Structure formats: C-alpha cells, structure tokens
Simulated scan of single mutants.
Amino acid sequence: MFIRGIRGATTVEKNDANEIIEETKKLMSQIILQNNLEPDKVAQIFVSLTDDLNADFPAKAIRTMEGWSFVPVMCMQEITVPNALPKCIRIMATVNTNAAQSQIHHIYLNEAIILRPDLTK
C-alpha cells in the first residue's frame, strides 16, 4: 500500500455559502468516485480557498457526506498571487491506496480545468 495525494479544484461564481458548500461536495464526490475512495483509507484532507472566498468553510461539505465525518479536514487560505484564478476551491486528500501514481485521478471542475489541462480527460 502507498500513501498518495489526490488533487482537485473547482470554482464558484460568487462568495456565497451555499455555492461554496455545493461545489465542494461536487468536487469531493468526483474525487471519491474516480478514485474509489473509502473514508477509512483517507488520512486527511486539506481544503484551500482563494482570498475572495470566506462565506463558509468548505470542510463542512465534506464532513456532512455520509461516512466522512471522522476524516480530519482542514481549511486554509491560498497565498495571494497576481492574476491567479479567482474564486477557487482546492482539495488535497492524502490517501492509502494500492494504485500507482499514474492511476490517480486528479479532478478539476468549472473554471479550474485551466489549472491542469494535462490532467483533464
């Protein structure tokens, strides 16, 4: 078994609590689905937001997903970089898996697909 990082990112249209929660759920659901994740195999999840998002904690979205309430989740603010993608939510999940690095599916949704076009299908 290996320890792997799984990345993902999405964007929201506005700094709205419901939108932040819903888009985080969509992103995490795709990460789970595409990587066949089970909560017991996840060591931790870090969620970052750009500085233009502060209406809610996206970690709440993950904690409310069935079976995920005991996985440690932490939110943080991204560094402010000129011309960076605005209104962006990023996830880094640290998981235990038998998958090779090349078999990990990193997920980019909405405007965030411009961050890693090489990883989108």
Rank of each mutant, 00 (worst) to 15 (best):
G8Y: 11
G8S: 13
A9R: 02
A9I: 06
T11Q: 01
V12T: 02
V12Y: 13
E13G: 10
K14E: 12
N15R: 05
A17L: 10
A17T: 08
A17P: 10
A17S: 07
N18R: 09
N18Y: 02
N18C: 07
E19S: 05
I20V: 10
I20N: 01
I21N: 14
E22C: 04
E23V: 13
K25A: 06
K26Y: 06
L27A: 06
M28F: 14
M28N: 08
M28E: 07
Q30V: 12
Q30L: 02
I31M: 01
I31T: 04
I31W: 01
I32P: 10
I32S: 01
I32T: 04
L33W: 14
L33A: 06
L33N: 11
L33R: 09
Q34V: 02
Q34I: 05
N35W: 09
N35R: 00
N35Q: 10
N36P: 02
N36V: 12
E38Q: 12
E38I: 15
P39G: 11
P39K: 02
P39E: 12
D40P: 10
D40W: 13
D40V: 15
K41C: 05
V42N: 03
A43F: 14
Q44E: 10
I45L: 08
I45K: 12
I45H: 12
F46G: 08
F46E: 12
V47M: 03
V47N: 05
S48N: 13
S48L: 02
S48M: 01
L49W: 07
L49Q: 04
L49E: 13
T50G: 00
T50S: 04
D51V: 13
D51N: 10
D52I: 03
A55N: 04
A55Q: 07
D56F: 10
D56C: 06
D56I: 14
D56E: 14
D56R: 09
P58C: 00
A59L: 00
A59P: 05
K60P: 09
K60T: 10
I62L: 13
I62M: 12
R63V: 09
R63D: 14
T64W: 11
E66F: 07
E66N: 08
W68K: 04
W68C: 03
W68Q: 05
W68E: 03
W68S: 00
S69F: 03
S69N: 10
S69I: 08
F70P: 00
F70A: 03
V71T: 01
V71Y: 01
V71H: 00
V71L: 04
P72A: 05
V73M: 08
M74H: 13
M74N: 11
M74Y: 15
C75L: 12
C75M: 15
M76I: 11
Q77D: 00
E78Y: 06
E78N: 01
I79F: 04
T80R: 09
V81D: 05
V81S: 13
V81A: 09
P82C: 03
P82Q: 01
P82Y: 02
N83K: 15
N83P: 14
N83Y: 15
N83D: 08
A84G: 06
A84M: 14
L85I: 06
L85E: 12
P86K: 07
P86D: 08
P86G: 00
P86E: 04
K87T: 14
K87A: 13
K87G: 02
I89S: 03
